[in-house]
Design a protein around this nucleic acid. Structure first.
Lengths: 340, 340
DNA sequence: CTGTTAGCGCATTCAT
DNA sequence: ATGAATGCGCTAACAG
């Protein structure tokens, strides 16, 4: 740490006691105006800033939020992080960010570490591996230690807490419906997030829409991406043998990646195949053709998540009246589809 | 904070004193094996984890690094952050991330806040606005408080500290040279980071290469991007009146954005115009055509920055033998250019 | 109005 | 081998 100026030093310099200095700086009504002025001037002069660690220890709260994100390179999560950071700063909170990298172990370790006094609560999106292990004890443990948890986007029913999500089912349902109404007969669904809550809901929306639209003998196929290289191989094969004219992808990268495969095959987008993706990120905006996409409003989501958590932090009883906020997405029409 | 289990509670439960428990858990040679066993078992049972805040306060170090980044939505910075986080965790450090959003005020405030006991040192990339204000006092102040600062990518001569950069001049020089050698006669340079150290070096590399290659009557033009919308307007105009056949862009987004403008004008890439960008990100890889780009090895850069800072943190005298690490970039040839 | 005292949770020096 | 006492920097109850 550092050669910091402390209350003690200020006390020595001013010939007041430590507590008087402390109160003076806090503008306590107990202290005379003269003393306050003197002390404040001195503090200014020496550029005093209170040691936040000591303050946190004393007050038993840190004004810091722990954020656990699966992958910062996905534009959606980066956007959410921007929103979280902005809103946190606005309320005088700091954030400590950990990247789980889709690993259960890293998620657990990060939470354990931060739960040892470093944060007042958590904002978390669950890693893929955690869904596979189906073990959410690290989350419930945190809550039982009085550290509120807010889950966003990738959530689970197994943990009782505040949640902020988007209307995944509906968004997916509507996008699929739009594709069909624009003339697509054979729409497939592509997902690299198959086992997350989000992936499941989006797949369900796709399936329901197909059912409701009753296209005779329509394709109904969900292609899972685990490894992009392998997927490219399989997809190229698939597209030769199947008469596809519409694709809904569960995230941004998979949409763009698939679009490039389609174009690479000599097919035209959207003339031969219409494509819609999720997340309105930098990729969708700048692809060629630009991608029709479902804007998840990541920054807004991050802000709301943070607001909700901070509200929770200010409550006495942390385990009551949990709320689940569901944000509405926006379909942004661009040249990769013909939907109206 | 929380209903944490503390040394004190463990002491009560075990009928040992706080200090004995503390020593036992630290495996001190002063304590008998039996006592150690008892205490450790109890600690395990109650899931004891030391309060890091108290530990930090006591030991006067936090094992936390403050990271200040201009914009997390730029893929390069996101990659660096991944590297920083990975390396930090590896050494038992946490990171607190602040996004300056290219604002001087936010940069200053973040550093002030974190300098009040929350971190042991900083990893920073300077905001655009800070370059304009030319005020780096917040950085030198941190250093004088014994909080080491490491600058990466966007650096300044005005602050003495460790630095990690890439060979911007050389990379830009070589890219320009490659374009010319591939047959380009009129190469322009496009930069949205005009007033940063990085932007200046890259522009210098471009200019030097033009000079050395001695193309007769070659174009030599640097287009600055401040607002993308305005730039689009100007560029469309520019390209109608100038016979351009090569573009070097100072970052990834500007490269892709410009490429789309070019294509929108009905020109072919790379047949009519070759394009090279900086940063090997998700955009370059998935654009159409894929972008020839200068890989800055962001993740690696982040790791090295973190390693360097941690090394510094372990030194006694923090103000000696500063080092500047310069990483070599890699030119990745893709279809947006014809370079060999 | 100001100062003394105590305590947040921990590590550590100094008794015993 | 164990425990008491001290202090990291701060706030706050209590005393004067």
């Amino acid at each position: 740490m550092s050669n910091q100026i402390t209350l003690k030093k200020l006390a020595n310099l001013s010939n007041f006691s430590v507590s008087t200095v402390s109160k003076a700086l806090a503008d306590s009504s107990e202290i005379s105006t003269k003393t306050k002025e003197k002390v404040k001037k001195l503090a200014e002069l020496y550029n005093y800033t209170p040691n936040l660690l000591a303050k946190s220890l004393k007050e038993r709260k840190t004004r810091t939020i722990g954020v656990i994100i699966p992958n910062i390179l996905a534009h959606f999560f980066a956007k959410v992080l921007v929103g979280i950071e902005k809103e946190a700063v606005k309320h005088g909170y700091n954030i400590i960010t950990c990247i789980s990298d889709e690993s259960y172990d890293k998620e657990v370790k990060s939470i354990q570490m931060l739960a040892s006094g470093s944060v007042d609560g958590f904002i978390i999106s669950i890693s893929k591996e955690t869904y596979i292990k189906e073990n959410y004890r690290h989350l419930t443990t945190a809550i039982s230690k009085n550290l509120p948890v807010l889950l966003f986007d990738r959530i689970t029913d197994k943990v009782m807490c505040d949640k902020v999500i988007i209307n995944d089912f509906e968004s997916s349902y509507n996008a699929t419906k739009s594709l069909i109404q624009s003339g697509c007969q054979n729409v497939i669904f592509i997902s690299p997030i198959n086992n997350t809550s989000v992936g499941i809901e989006r797949a369900r929306g796709y399936n329901e829409a197909l059912k409701d639209q009753k296209v005779p003998e329509a394709a109904s196929e969900i292609l899972i991406i685990e490894d992009y290289k392998k997927f490219a191989h399989n997809f190229n094969h698939y597209i030769e043998n199947n008469n596809i004219d519409g694709i809904l992808a569960a995230d941004e990268l998979s949409a763009i990646y698939t679009m490039n495969l389609v174009i690479g095959k000599g097919l035209k987008v959207p003339e031969d195949i219409s494509i819609i993706g999720f997340t309105d990120g930098i990729l969708s905006e700048n692809s060629n053709p630009p991608l029709t996409t479902i804007d998840q409003h990541g920054i807004e989501l991050g802000k709301i998540a943070t607001k909700t958590l901070i509200k929770r932090l200010q409550k006495d009883d942390i385990t009551k009246d949990y709320e689940t906020v569901t944000l509405k997405t926006t379909l942004i029409k661009r040249a990769s589809s013909n939907i109206s």
